[in-house]
Simulated scan of single mutants.
Amino acid sequence: MYLDQQSPSQHHPQLACPKCGHNSVVQHGNVYVCLSCNFHRNVSEPETASGVFSVIGIAVLIWLIVQVSFYPPASQPSLSPAYPSNIPQQP
């Protein structure tokens, strides 16, 4: 990849290259380039994988909400003692 020498580059020592792991990543406009292995990524282009995962995640969330809304809440057991009607009461 050829970088224009007239435009400024900015070094990001905290960023590690995802390919080689070295902290030799520089930013040149919208492109991040590793000086060790020449790996580059244009950050102005959207990543399609994250968009697909977002759509799948939203679809699963909507499905869960619809499933939960169709089931009535579980009835709570009564905590009061139950007395059978055929047992005589003591006076």
Rank of each mutant, 00 (worst) to 15 (best):
V60P: 00
P73E: 06
V52A: 12
P18N: 14
P13D: 10
V52K: 03
G57M: 08
V66Y: 15
S75V: 05
V26I: 14
N23A: 08
M1W: 00
V52H: 07
E47T: 10
L79G: 04
P8W: 05
S69Q: 08
H40A: 03
P72V: 11
I87K: 06
H11D: 00
P73L: 13
N30T: 14
H12P: 00
P46L: 01
K19A: 05
L79Y: 00
N23Q: 10
S80D: 14
F39V: 03
G29W: 02
G29D: 06
N38I: 07
Q6H: 08
I56Y: 04
F39D: 15
I65M: 15
H12S: 05
R41K: 10
T48Y: 01
V68G: 07
Q14N: 01
P91Q: 03
L3V: 04
C37R: 02
P8V: 14
G51R: 10
Q5G: 04
W63R: 07
S78I: 13
G21V: 03
P88W: 09
L3R: 06
A59R: 03
I65L: 15
S78A: 11
Y83L: 12
P88R: 13
S80V: 11
S69E: 08
S54F: 04
N23M: 04
H40N: 12
A82L: 11
E45T: 11
